[in-house]
Amino acid sequence: MEVFIALIIGFLYGASVYMFLRRSIVKLVLGIIFLSHATNLLLFSTGGFLRGSPPFVDEVGSDASLPVADPLPQALVLTALVISLGVTAFSLVLIYRFYKETGSVDLDELAQMEKK
């Protein structure tokens, strides 16, 4: 299990890096999405792999004999998810504006524009 999930995380990171290294600005945004996917999964998995016991407690407090999944990574990922929505939306709009201002979706052209 650990090996399998680790491989998937690595695969997602690899995909994100590959997308980052492309010239198209749309692929750059896809890379950002992959990166946040990979990181969310990594964070989540650090809590361990416990099935069927979501982090809920009953009124008497927790019972050590009934372990629940680690809530902290989940809380971290939950906010990260919503933030990544905000960030992705922002970068999408940014590339849209970039295209409207420059008429280009090629990042290498950006470098040449700066040089001028």
Binding site: A6, I9, G10, Y13, G14, A38
Partner: peptide
């Protein structure tokens, strides 16, 4: 990079 991240995760 992906492989290294996989190791790190593991």
């Amino acid at each position: 990079f992906g492989l290294l991240m996989a190791f790190l995760a593991f």
